[in-house]
Structure formats: structure tokens, C-alpha cells
Design a protein around this nucleic acid. Structure first.
Length: 445
RNA sequence: UCGAGGAUAGCUCAAUGGUGGAGCAUUCGGCUGUUAACCGAAGGGUUGGGGGUUCGAGUCCCCCUCCUCGAGCCA
């Protein structure tokens, strides 16, 4: 008997096949049982008729519990009521294991209950669909990079110091060498790679020990960071645009079934085509002033609302939202005030208070999915910035070397994978975008 | 870290300071086209922990623990 997967079942109509999987749900009606099977590729309903199977098979079905592992054999037929749906007329059943009472029922559950059982929650159709979409996104990112001449350049996870110095780092003991920190970005190393290989990208886990308890943050997440020699900020934005269009259009094409099953309105994603709006920070501030969105500052006795929005301040969630709602595509906000950004960003030659950085804000309130910049390539200016930011200059000696030996203009950006997944899937919370999320208050399972 | 809300059956939630309930899940019974199937029955509780007010506390007050949402930080 041929073993088939549920997602290819339509090609086996009228044939007897074997499915290896699990019991997803079961309903019965007197002398008929409707078991629903899953096998990791999809769901299919079985039909068991008491008059047409051995008594043992009938009795075995009555013993089955949710998530019991089973191998079933039967005839593939069209569903009598539903279009494009198939059923299996069960003839035989082999029980691999009777599952203990399964905690996740077809009814509603709270997020904490499900998170405690993440290892089981992953079996639900919605979670499985999200992870298939994640897989497609990762694959398309890698293919875009490969097809466009980027070299995969893996950067270390144990690092001796902070990349930007601002974010909190996870510390570990590293033999006799003192503390090592888990990487919060591969960028500085990728810059060395870009000078060596032209165009590179790093794609790996990153760690931020920030106590951020929002729907957009996890402490361990995957980041893809391309870095390109002889790219200025505008080349960088051209790349971001081309890259995002490719990835989104491809996931729409290859994951239409999964996107539909999680109820994603794909019309908003279909719109993600070049060109994307590019606005300067200054223009973004104009939008905020027109909409009368204030800067909210915390003071000793509550908060202070400052309007009009002052030039030079960084944006918070309400500001990003107000800017994004003017457009129906990702928005690239570029040329930021220097004090709001990292030390390695190159200053705008036209205005030393401005850096050549770019943030990409996703539509529908998903916030910053990409942050990038042209890097400071001048030896003296870079040293000066490191000192200004109060960073230990010895630790950056190898990084500074890149400006001593054949320095060139170069740029890059960082893409947060889980934020991309959240946006594509329209998730309420980033915790569903990764198999086992790590948050400040959760490290299990 | 700050602000707001919450913790009651295995799960999701009700309960005016006065005998703690329902749906689902589980067990048993019924039903030949069910779709979070349906119908009937049964079992299931130290109301997160500690203290206080009261004749009487799931309910009011204080402390603690944990969770959720929002803010900040960022991808």
C-alpha cells in the first residue's frame, strides 16, 4: 500500500492509500465515525462505517484519543458536500500509541496555558501554518541573497563587547578570558566580510537582554543582515525595496493556502511593490505636526505632552503608527538626527547633525522591521564617535582597522525575521512567529 | 522599570457581602453524513499565597507571587 501525505491526497482519488499521522479530532454518529487525521502536511477527514470494517477496527476507533498516533488505510474519495475536499474511507487502523488525555482541546485556551505547552501547541493548524510561512520566508531570503551575489558570512555569537553599547547584553563566563556576551548583532563583523568579499549577509540568532514585554519583542530572535561595499544610503534603500518586494511576492505565491488558513487578508501584501515611499526624518516630523501628534515625555509627576513634535527626538510607537497610516506600503524613513542613532552611522555630508540611517516601517502597525545605514568610513571620525559614545576603544581596534586598510563607503541593514513573520501573518503577538519564543519571563519549554 | 487590568473545576468564563454555576474536556449511554457535531446522565472545587474587617468574604482592605495589555528600549 502506498504511503502518501495529506497535501498530495488529491492526486490519489479513487485509490487505496496509507496515511501515517495523528488523530486530530473525532466525531461519531451511531454507526458512523468521522475521525480527523493530521500528518504534518494537512488535515483530512476519515469515514468509518460500522458495517464495512472489522469489529476490531470499529472497537479500536472507539478507544482512540486526541493526538493518538495512527496508521490508517483506506480509499480516497471526494467529500460529498465540500468542493476540493477529500476524505478517506477507512478500511484498516494500526494504533502506534494511545495518547494520554490531551490538554489542548478544540476549544479556546488562554495564551499562558498554551505557552506552557508550546511543544504541543505547535501541532495546531494555525501554528503549523505560521511556521510553514516562516520557512518560506527564510528560504526566499536566502535565495534572494544567493541569486544577487551575496555571500553567506556567519558571524560569532560569543562576542567580547557590545556592538552599540546601549542595549543590555546576556553575559556568560568564558574560561580564563572573562565575560563573553551573546551577540546582539553581527553587523560589525559583517562589515569586515563586505570589505573582504564585496557583498555578504549574516543570518543567525541575536540576543537582547532588554526587559521589553510587548507584542513586538522577544529576547532571542533571528536577524538577517546584509552588508555591501561601495553602497551608499540610496543604494541601500534600492536594495531594501527590491528585496522586500521579492520576499513578499514570493510568500504570497507559494503560501497562499497557509495565508488563507490563518485568515490573512492578503490584499495589503499584494500591494508591496516597488517603489516604496521614501521620506526623510524631517518630512516625517512634518506629518506628525500636521496630525498634531505630541511627543510624550515622562516627568516626576506623570507625563508631559510636547507639541508641536520637536525636531531631533526619536519616534515612539504612536508616531510610527501615524506616519505609516499615510501609506499602504512599507515606508522608508531616512536621514535621522545623529543623537537618536548608533555611533557607526555616517553623517550626512550636507548636514553634520544628520546620519545616513534608514528605518523601514511595516504597514498595519507592525512597526520597524528593518533598520539600516551607511557606515562611517572615515578613520578619525569613527574613533571620535566611539569616544563620544563612551565605548572602550581598545575593543574596537579590529573594527577601526577596516578604516585604515582600504576603507570604502559601505552600507547594510538588519531585518528582524520574527517581525517580518508577524507582519506577513498579521499576528497579534511575536511569540507565535518562532517555535520556542524566549521572553524576559519565559525560557520554557 | 513605570502605568492599567487580572488569577474561581483539566480548559474558557459566570456568581448584589448571605447554599460557588455554565459550556467544553473526561467517563457512561443514544444517534448512518458529522464539521469547535448533537442529545441524556455522572464525576470533578482549600476560589493564586498570607494577613485583616465582618455574625458571615470568591466578593471589601493590606502585603506577596504570577500572568496579560500598554509605555520606554529596539529588529
Amino acid at each position: 500500500m502506498e504511503r502518501v501525505y495529506i497535501n498530495t491526497i488529491s492526486g490519489h482519488e479513487g485509490k487505496e492509500v496509507t496515511l501515517k499521522g495523528w488523530l486530530y479530532n473525532i466525531r461519531s454518529s451511531g454507526k458512523l465515525i468521522f475521525p480527523e487525521f493530521r500528518d504534518g502536511t494537512g488535515l483530512i477527514q476519515g469515514v468509518v462505517s460500522k458495517n464495512e470494517v472489522d469489529e476490531k477496527v470499529w472497537n479500536d476507533f472507539n478507544d482512540l484519543t486526541q493526538e493518538s498516533s495512527v496508521i490508517v488505510t483506506g480509499l480516497v474519495t471526494k467529500h460529498p458536500k465540500k468542493e476540493d475536499t477529500y476524505e478517506i474511507q477507512v478500511k484498516n487502523l494500526e494504533i502506534i500509541q494511545i495518547a494520554e488525555p490531551y490538554p489542548i482541546t478544540p476549544k479556546e485556551h488562554g495564551v499562558d496555558f498554551l505557552s506552557d505547552r508550546r511543544h504541543l501547541w505547535l501541532r495546531s493548524q494555525r501554528q503549523a501554518a505560521i511556521l510553514r510561512i516562516r520557512n518560506e520566508l527564510v528560504q526566499s531570503i536566502r535565495e534572494y541573497m544567493y541569486n544577487n551575489g551575496f555571500i553567506l558570512f556567519d558571524t560569532p555569537i560569543f562576542t567580547p563587547n557590545a556592538c552599540e553599547g546601549t542595549s543590555t547584553l546576556f553575559a556568560t563566563d568564558y574560561f580564563d578570558l572573562g565575560k563573553a556576551y551573546l551577540s546582539q548583532s553581527g553587523q560589525l563583523y559583517a562589515e569586515a566580510g563586505a570589505i573582504a568579499l564585496g557583498k555578504v549577509y549574516t543570518f543567525g540568532p541575536t540576543f537582547r537582554a532588554e526587559n521589553s514585554m510587548t507584542r513586538r519583542h522577544i529576547t532571542e530572535f533571528w536577524m538577517m543582515e546584509p552588508e555591501m561595499a561601495y553602497y551608499d544610503i540610496d543604494d541601500n534603500m534600492d536594495l531594501i525595496e527590491d528585496f522586500l518586494e521579492y520576499v513578499i511576492q514570493r510568500v504570497l505565491k507559494n503560501c497562499s493556502k497557509e495565508l488563507k488558513s490563518i485568515g490573512r487578508d492578503t490584499s495589503k501584501l499584494e500591494n508591496v511593490l516597488k517603489p516604496f515611499p521614501r521620506i526623510t526624518y524631517e518630512e516625517a516630523v512634518e506629518i506628525l505636526r500636521e496630525k498634531d501628534i505630541p511627543l510624550i515625555k515622562k516627568t516626576e509627576n506623570g507625563e508631559e505632552h510636547i507639541r508641536p513634535f520637536p525636531f531631533g527626538e526619536d519616534f515612539g510607537a504612536p508616531h510610527e503608527e501615524a506616519i505609516v497610516e499615510n501609506f499602504n506600503k512599507p515606508v522608508m524613513v531616512h536621514r535621522w538626527p545623529a543623537e537618536a542613532k548608533a555611533f557607526y552611522m555616517k553623517r550626512d555630508p550636507k548636514d553634520p547633525k544628520i546620519v545616513l540611517g534608514v528605518d523601514v516601517l511595516a504597514p498595519e502597525g507592525f512597526g520597524e522591521i528593518i533598520g539600516g545605514s551607511q557606515r562611517e568610513d572615515n578613520l578619525e571620525l569613527l574613533k571620535q564617535r566611539i569616544i563620544e559614545h563612551d565605548l572602550p576603544i581598545e575593543a574596537f581596534s579590529w573594527y577601526i582597522d577596516l578604516r585604515r586598510f582600504g576603507s570604502v563607503p559601505h552600507s547594510g541593514f538588519g531585518l528582524g525575521l520574527e517581525r517580518l513573520v508577524s507582519w506577513v501573518c498579521n499576528l497579534d503577538h511575536i511569540r507565535e512567529a518562532i517555535p520556542f519564543p524566549r521572553r524576559p519571563n519565559r525560557i520554557t519549554p
